[in-house]
Design a binder for these strands. Structure first.
Length: 564
RNA sequence: UGUCCUGUGGUGUAACUGGCAACACGUCUGACUCUGGAUCAGAAGAGUCCAGGUUCGAGCCCUGGCAGGACAACCA
C-alpha cells in the first residue's frame, strides 16, 4: 500500500474553501510565525441574524481549526445608534451558539486613545488635515468616475495648524459636524474611498462605554483596520461590500507602519424567502409585522432559538453553505434539513393532536384506563420508554379520517382498519355529524388481541395514527409558522417594497389542540417531535395550565406532496 | 460612463492547482417501516457565460466580449 491514489473521500476531506487555503499557505510559509488570529466585529446596533452566524462560525471556526484565537470585538464607533442592550444580546447569542472568546472581549472604543495618537501621527506626516467643509459642501466637491474631486480648501493647511485644530476638536471646542479630520490621499483615484476619506467627525454624544470623554468619533475605516492591527489580527474576514475599502485598509498599514493584518472578503449569506438587512428587520419589528426580534419567523438568532432551532443545527448549516466570493441564495430547505436531521436524533417523540376529532371505541369498556408503553425515540435506544393512558374516547387528527377516501389513503375510513400507535388496531364503523354535516365523532371497534407488542399484533394494517386519550389530554395552543415572505427574493424586485411580499399566513394559531399528559412537565424551549406532525418546542409564552408550542419545522410529508 | 468583485446541474460548494466534472440540499423511483418520519438502494439533472487562442489535452492558462453584483454616507 504505497502509492494509493487518494480516494474521493480523502480528497473531499482535504478540500478547503479559499480562506482556509490562504490560511494554510500562510502557516506553511511561516507568516506571523504561523499564528492564526481572527475576530468577529459586530456593531452593537441590532440583533444578530443567521447571516452573522455564518460569519462568526467562520471566524471562530478558522481559529479553532488552526489552533488560533478569535476575539469578540464590538465595533462601537457610532454612539448615536449603538446601545449596551445590543451588546448583551450579541454576547448571549454567540455563547448560545457554542463559541467562547475567553477574556478577549474588546471594543473599538477601548482604542480611542491609541486611534487618536495614530491620527496625530498621520497629521504629522502631512497625510491628514482638518476640513471645515460641511457635509453638503463635501458632497458638492465630489467628482465622478473620471473626474477628480475638487480639493478641499483646507487640504494644504500647515501641519501645526492641523495639530492644533484636531486637538481643539477633541477638546470639544467646536459644534457637531463643523469639522472633520480627513486623510490626504488621492483625489483622482478611481476608488472613491481613496479620495480624502473622512477619519473623524464631531459628535457631542454620550457613548455607552466611554461616556462623555470623547466628542470626536472615528469612522469605520479608521477604527476597524487599526483595531485589527492593535489586536494582532492575522486574518480579518469580512463580507464583500468591503472589497473597495481594502486599498484604504492597506494604505493605513503602510503609512502608519503598524501590524499588517490582512483583510479577506467572502460573500454574505442570503436565504430564500427572507431578508437579511438589519435595517429592514428592524422595520418589521417597529411596524409590528412580527412580534419582536425573537419572533419565531425572524431569521435572527433570537428568533431561530425561539422557533426551536438548535445551535448544532445552525452550525451544521453554516458549514454546509460553504464559503466563496460569489453571490448566493441558499434554499431555506437546507436550513430545514439541518434542523430536522439534528432533532430527529435528539427530540423525544410525543403525541399531540392539532385538529382533534373524537374517536369512540364502542367495544372498549367505559371508565377503563390502560397504561401502554411506548418508546421515546426510535433513533435513540438510550431514550427509554414511557407509558401513555389509553381509554374508550380518544382524540385523533381530523385529517386522518375520510368518509370517502381516495385509493392511496392509508388512514381511517368506514370499514377500514388502522393501527393506533403503540395501542390497538381499530376499525371505523360510523360517524356522528352536526346540523352542518361536520363530523363530531367517529365510532369504531377495536381488536383486543392487537395490542402493540403482543404476539397477536403482527397483523399488518395500512396505516398508523397518533392519538391522545380524551380524558387525560392536556389542552394546548400551537403556533404554526410558514415563511415570512411568499416570494423567494422579497428584497430583489426593483420598484417593489419588500413588505409587499409579506406572507399574510405566516402565522396560524390553533387553540384547541390536545397533547399527551407528559407534556405538562415540559420546560421552556424543550424540543419534541409530535409523531407524524413535526418538530415542536415549548414557547416561553406558556404558563401553568396554558401550554404553547411552536412548530419548528414539519416532517417530510409525502402524503401532502401526493395531494398536490 | 470609472474602478473593483463574480460567472460550474434547480440551489450551494468542490475538482489535489492543465488529465474528459464530484459532494450536499432539492426532485423522482423502489425497498423497509406500528411516525406516509427515519433508514436503505437507485435515477434524472451541468459539459463549466460566450468566442477565439496556447496545449497531445483547459472549468482551471492567454486575448476579446457578454452578464450579474458592489462602490460613489460626517453608517458599519
Amino acid at each position: 500500500m504505497t502509492d494509493d491514489k487518494p480516494t474521493p473521500a480523502a480528497n473531499e476531506a482535504r478540500s478547503l474553501n479559499f480562506i482556509e487555503q490562504i490560511v494554510e499557505e500562510d502557516i506553511r510559509s511561516g507568516k506571523h510565525k504561523a499564528r492564526v488570529h481572527t475576530r468577529f466585529p459586530p456593531e452593537p446596533n441590532g440583533y444578530l441574524h443567521i447571516g452573522h452566524a455564518k460569519a462568526f462560525c467562520l471566524d471562530f471556526g478558522i481559529a479553532e481549526k488552526y489552533g488560533g484565537l478569535c476575539n469578540l470585538r464590538f465595533d462601537d464607533t457610532n454612539p448615536i445608534t449603538e446601545d449596551t442592550s445590543y451588546v448583551d444580546s450579541i454576547r448571549k447569542d454567540i455563547h448560545w451558539m457554542g463559541f467562547d472568546w475567553g477574556n478577549r472581549e474588546y471594543y473599538a472604543s477601548d482604542y480611542f486613545d491609541q486611534l487618536y495618537d495614530l491620527a496625530v501621527q498621520l497629521i504629522k506626516k502631512g497625510k491628514a488635515f482638518v476640513c471645515q467643509l460641511t457635509a453638503d459642501e463635501v458632497n458638492a466637491s465630489r467628482g465622478t468616475d473620471f473626474e477628480p474631486d475638487k480639493p478641499s480648501p483646507y487640504r494644504d493647511r500647515p501641519v501645526e495648524e492641523n495639530l492644533q485644530l484636531f486637538e481643539r476638536m477633541k477638546n470639544g471646542e467646536f459644534p457637531n459636524d463643523s469639522m472633520t479630520l480627513r486623510a490626504k490621499i488621492d483625489l483622482s483615484s478611481p476608488n472613491m474611498h481613496m479620495r480624502d476619506p473622512i477619519l473623524y467627525r464631531i459628535r457631542h454624544a454620550h457613548h455607552h462605554r466611554t461616556g462623555d470623554k470623547w466628542c470626536i468619533y472615528p469612522m469605520y475605516d479608521w477604527a476597524h483596520g487599526q483595531s485589527d492591527s492593535i489586536e494582532g489580527i492575522t486574518h480579518s474576514l469580512c463580507t464583500l461590500e468591503f472589497v473597495p475599502h481594502r486599498p484604504l485598509y492597506e494604505w493605513f498599514i503602510r503609512e502608519l507602519e503598524i501590524f499588517p493584518s490582512r483583510q479577506i472578503e467572502f460573500a454574505r449569506l442570503n436565504l430564500s424567502y427572507t431578508i437579511m438587512s438589519k435595517r429592514k428587520l428592524l422595520q418589521l419589528v417597529k411596524e409590528e409585522h412580527v412580534k419582536g426580534w425573537d419572533d419565531p419567523r425572524m431569521p435572527t438568532i433570537h428568533g431561530l432559538r425561539r422557533r426551536g432551532y438548535t445551535p448544532e443545527s445552525i452550525r451544521q448549516f453554516a458549514d454546509m453553505v460553504g464559503i466563496a466570493k460569489r453571490e448566493n441564495v441558499i434554499d431555506v430547505a437546507l436550513l430545514e434539513y439541518c434542523i430536522r436531521e439534528d432533532l430527529n436524533k435528539r427530540a423525544p417523540r410525543v403525541m399531540g393532536v392539532l385538529n382533534p376529532v373524537k374517536l369512540i371505541i364502542d367495544n372498549y369498556p367505559e371508565g377503563k384506563t390502560e397504561y401502554l408503553d411506548t418508546v421515546n425515540n426510535p433513533e435513540d435506544p438510550e431514550a427509554g420508554t414511557r407509558s401513555l393512558p389509553f381509554s374508550r374516547e380518544l382524540w385523533i387528527e381530523r385529517e386522518d379520517f375520510m368518509e370517502d377516501p381516495p385509493k392511496k389513503f392509508f388512514r381511517l375510513s368506514p370499514g377500514n382498519e388502522v393501527r393506533l400507535k403503540s395501542a390497538y388496531i381499530v376499525k371505523a364503523e360510523s360517524v356522528e355529524k352536526d346540523a352542518d354535516g361536520i363530523i363530531t365523532a367517529i365510532h369504531c371497534t377495536y381488536d383486543p388481541q392487537s395490542l402493540s407488542g403482543s404476539d397477536e399484533a403482527k397483523r399488518k394494517v395500512k396505516g398508523t395514527l397518533h392519538w391522545v386519550s380524551a380524558a387525560h389530554a392536556l389542552d394546548a395552543e400551537v403556533r404554526l409558522y410558514d415563511r415570512l415572505f411568499n416570494d423567494p427574493d422579497p428584497d430583489g424586485h426593483k420598484g417593489h417594497n419588500f413588505k409587499e411580499f409579506l406572507n399574510p399566513d405566516s402565522l396560524t394559531i390553533l387553540n384547541h389542540c390536545k397533547v399527551e399528559p407528559s407534556l405538562g412537565e415540559a420546560s421552556e424551549l424543550d424540543h419534541f417531535q409530535f409523531i407524524r406532525l413535526g418538530c415542536f418546542n415549548l414557547d416561553p409564552d406558556s404558563s401553568v395550565g396554558h401550554l404553547v408550542f411552536n412548530r419548528t419545522v414539519g416532517l417530510k410529508d409525502t402524503w401532502a406532496k401526493m395531494k398536490q
